Simulated assay, not measured.
Amino acid sequence: MGYQDEWLLLEAEDDIDEVEHRQPTEEFLFYQAVTKGDVKAVKENCEKERFLDSEGVGTLSRNPITNLKYHFVITTAMITRLCKQKGMELEQAFRMSDFYIQRLDDVHTVQGIRNLHDEMVLDYTDKMRKIYGSDTNSRHICVCKEYIYSHLKERITIEDLADELGVSASYLSRLFKKETGDSVSAYIRRQKIEMAKNLLQYSEYSIIDIANRLSFSSQSHFIQQFREYVGITPKKYRDLNHMIQWDIET
């Protein structure tokens, strides 16, 4: 009997254990946090030991250690390609991948694999953080951008940012406009809309849930802002893009 026949018989069995796989939302947002250099979010994910959580995750091997190693390799491959797309130099991205996968050969415990996973994802995240911070913006503006990204779910004001940096709101407003070409409020709005696009595409959150999650004053305000920025309503955007393939180069 060939493998295809064996699979067809397995699928036909009534008593086969049905495993409902995780929705890709959480996984996608984790990968996005890595490629954005969001060290805080990635650390929180590691502390929750989500990598070790087997609920909703496919079984790739009956041996638990081998199964975890397979998932490690998949995670490393995904992160490598996404980081490359977001600006990491190709040779660096793949050398890091080779390094961590080769180190996996010497690890033979669940805790050891988990520790290596956390080290790997934080290494990529820290390097992406440096890539995002290596533009021509001053330190104040780089800190502003990091703060905004880390607090997208909140209502952020110029006063919040000024307090964070210990400068006046008027000075920061002028500096931000000079260095980025955007007002602070326009930049914050654009980042929220970009996050909303991801949630519409990769999650099952309702439009009102997304509006609330990103601290828009109302659903109608969110729809208005989204339409101004994207050119179509959130519903239309979801209808066109929901659950399309992730943009990962082969």
Rank of each mutant, 00 (worst) to 15 (best):
M96V: 00
E119H: 10
K127G: 01
D106P: 03
H108T: 11
N115P: 01
L104K: 10
I101M: 13
D106I: 11
V121H: 05
M96W: 08
M128G: 04
D118P: 03
F99L: 12
D118F: 07
Y100K: 10
D105L: 14
Q102W: 01
I113M: 08
M128A: 05
L104W: 06
V110R: 15
H117T: 08
V121I: 13
D106V: 11
L116N: 05
R129G: 00
M96A: 06
V110F: 12
V121A: 09
R114I: 00
G112S: 07
K127L: 10
M96S: 09
M120P: 03
E119T: 12
L104N: 06
D105T: 13
H117F: 15
T109H: 15
I101D: 00
T109M: 15
R103I: 01
R95Y: 10
D123T: 13
T109P: 14
L104F: 08
M128E: 01
D106T: 13
V121N: 05
L122H: 06
D105H: 14
D118V: 06
K127H: 13
G112P: 05
G112N: 02
R95S: 11
I113L: 08
F99G: 08
D105K: 15
L122E: 05
D126E: 11
T125C: 04
M120T: 09
D118M: 11
S97T: 01
T109E: 13
M96P: 01
N115Y: 08
D126Y: 04
M128W: 02
S97L: 06
M128N: 02
I113T: 04
E119F: 07
Y100Q: 09
Q111P: 00
T125E: 01
Q102A: 09
R114W: 11
R103T: 07
H108Y: 11
R103H: 09
T125N: 00
M128P: 03
D118W: 04
R114M: 12
H117Q: 11
D126M: 09
R114Q: 15
D118A: 12
M120C: 11
Y100W: 07
G112T: 04
I101V: 15
T125I: 00
V107H: 03
Q111A: 10
D126H: 08
N115G: 03
K127Y: 09
D118E: 13
I113C: 02
F99H: 15
D106C: 10
V110D: 07
L116M: 06
L116E: 03
L116S: 04
V107D: 01
